[in-house]
């Protein structure tokens, strides 16, 4: 096989991957350092969008559009609303950053040391690809008739789990309504008292 042509797809993936992840790192540094919370939330939206692009490069297309819709869309909207209600400026911290930095550096060093044992990125014989995943790749089209394997697992093999997931969303919705709905009623009562 022609070497130059043969390495094409893998090289393109690697270049996109490294470029996008480096942009992610830059965005994250800005998010950590900024004190204006509106700017922080906007950059977090950008972070989510970049992350969605990374998912696309890493073949997780379903995760990519969920991240773009939920991470960059809904989460940004919710955070913006909360920032407008609670104040836009973060006050400078009283304590210095030395203590937290030490803890973070120590934890990070241990975790980075652990990545040496991780299998190389993208190798087809990594342990994760040799256990149950081949079952779904080989049989899910015949067993469910759905060409998208992620959808087949989510909606068919693990349908009850997805039902549980919607219960989580429902519970969260009820919790938010209880927390913020009661507030409006109390304000009304205060107005009536006055």
């Amino acid at each position: 096989m022609d070497q130059g042509q043969g390495k094409g797809p893998r090289l393109i993936t690697a270049v996109h991957d490294i470029l996008l992840l480096t942009l992610l790192l830059v965005t994250t540094v800005a998010v950590v350092r900024l004190r204006n919370l509106v700017a922080v939330v906007m950059l977090l939206g950008l972070y989510s969008l970049l992350m969605a692009a990374v998912w696309l490069v890493l073949d997780a297309v379903d995760v990519a559009f969920t991240e773009a819709a939920v991470g960059a869309g809904i989460t940004t909207f919710l955070l913006l609303a909360a920032v407008l209600l609670t104040g836009q400026e973060e006050k400078p911290p009283r304590r210095g950053p030395i203590g937290p930095l030490l803890i973070v550096a120590a934890t990070g060093a241990v975790l980075l040391y652990a990545t040496a044992d991780m299998p190389p990125f993208g190798a087809p014989d990594n342990p994760i690809h040799r256990h149950v995943a081949p079952y779904y790749i080989d049989r899910s089209l015949d067993e469910t008739g759905v060409p998208n394997m992620v959808t087949a697992v989510l909606a068919s093999y693990r349908g009850y789990d997805t039902l549980g997931e919607t219960t989580v969303i429902f519970t969260a919705g009820v919790a938010v309504l209880v927390l913020l709905g009661g507030r409006r009623r109390r304000e009304d009562e205060i107005e009536e008292d006055e």
Partner: peptide, 17 residues
């Protein structure tokens, strides 16, 4: 961890599931 990209191949090197 989920990404598969087969080294030294032209087309069928690992794609979205």
């Amino acid at each position: 961890m989920s990404k598969v990209s087969v080294p030294d191949c032209a087309i069928d090197c690992g794609t979205a599931p």
